[in-house]
């Protein structure tokens, strides 16, 4: 028996979400008196997987795995899970996780909790796992009844702890001869911004209160000084003031950063659904009745065009005093 964790490499490093998943898997493994095996595709420095708690790393090997095709990847993870006799499989609930984890669950008849925000409560063979429901307005405790269990983790919901452990790394040849997926990748467009919004710890977001795309320089400058990613509200993306990948909210990206600063965003319920998992929320709005203040930890009522440049200066001073 073991706990298998699907991990990924991005920009030459193990993804933070993957380390969250390995940590999570190792906490489960400790309770089950077993160990974590991480599976990964590609090459990078893998020492952090051992530090995060993996005892073994299997590098999945097959030429068909180059595109993260769901049918191939599901079969590959199934083969690794079978070889490792895994009863619990952990994913991050990012885009790949949302495509693969439920597919694998159906293949294995494994009960799945997608988007977990807490460690499982383990009682005998039953796991009970907390997840957000109603777009963050509530949580629910899901019990998994099947022998095999899959949990995918809401990104940025768990801390990453690196210890002293090391993992034994080996290649794992996957046999995909019997599958021929009709999906052909024609083009991949990577977002060019340095910070991937769903992974960002700090996010500066702005809305219609900025009055036009030409006024975004101060938002970008504040984000840059803080080392934050930039985001926007839906109307701003719909009016093409900002690119769609920056749109956070119910129909856009859901994020859970440590700090979310919302400038000139009124706080419609659909917007809140995408950001209410943020640990600290700051709202800057000229309208003191803006509903967003009810969901904020800190608020400033006033003109963004005066406040944001002052904040930029304040952050610069802060950095000068804390280096």
């Amino acid at each position: 028996m073991s706990v298998l964790v699907y991990t990924e490499i991005a920009k030459g490093k193990i993804k933070k979400a993957s380390l969250e998943a390995v940590n999570y898997g190792s906490r489960i493994a400790a309770q089950m008196n077993t160990t974590v095996t991480a599976v990964i595709i590609g090459d990078a420095d893998l020492t952090d997987l051992g530090k995060a708690g993996a005892k073994k790393v299997l590098k999945l090997k097959n030429d068909k795995l180059s595109d993260l095709n769901g049918q191939y990847l599901t079969a590959a993870i199934e083969q690794a899970a079978s070889a490792e006799n895994a009863s619990v499989i952990i994913f991050s609930s990012d885009f790949t996780g949302k495509e693969i984890a439920p597919r694998l669950a159906a293949k294995l008849k494994a009960g799945i909790v997608a988007g977990a925000v807490g460690d499982p409560v383990i009682s005998g063979d039953s796991f009970t796992v907390k997840k957000n429901v109603f777009s963050g307005k509530a949580t629910a405790m899901y019990s998994i009844h099947s022998a095999k269990k899959i949990i995918s983790l809401l990104p940025n919901s768990f801390p990453v702890t690196l210890g002293e452990g090391t993992a034994e790394v080996s290649d794992f040849a996957v046999n995909l001869d019997s599958i021929n997926s009709p999906v052909k990748v024609k083009e991949v467009k990577k977002v060019t911004s340095e910070l991937n919004l769903p992974d960002a710890e700090l996010v500066v977001s702005a809305g219609r209160g900025m009055k036009g795309p030409e006024n975004w320089a101060m938002v970008e400058e504040l984000a840059k000084e803080l080392g934050a990613a930039t985001a926007c509200s839906r109307p701003v993306a719909d009016m093409h003031w900002r690119p769609h990948h920056e749109h956070v909210g119910q129909t856009g990206v859901a994020i859970r950063p440590n700090l979310y600063i919302a400038i000139g965003i009124s706080g419609a319920i659909q917007h809140l659904a995408g950001v209410n998992g943020s640990k600290t929320i700051v709202v800057i709005n000229s309208d003191k009745e803006a509903p967003f203040f009810k969901s904020a930890d800190y608020g400033i009522v006033g003109d963004a065009f005066e406040i944001v440049p002052k904040l930029v200066e304040a952050v610069k001073n802060f950095k000068a005093n804390h280096n």
Binding site: A110, G111, I112, V133, K137, H145, I300, V301
Partner: peptide, 23 residues
């Protein structure tokens, strides 16, 4: 095959009062 079930719900905790800062 029903592989999961929900045993309980809890409303998300609201934030404590918003602290206002002088503009």
């Amino acid at each position: 095959d029903k592989l999961t079930s929900i045993s309980s719900y809890e409303l998300a905790k609201g934030r404590t009062e918003c602290k206002f800062i002088d503009a």
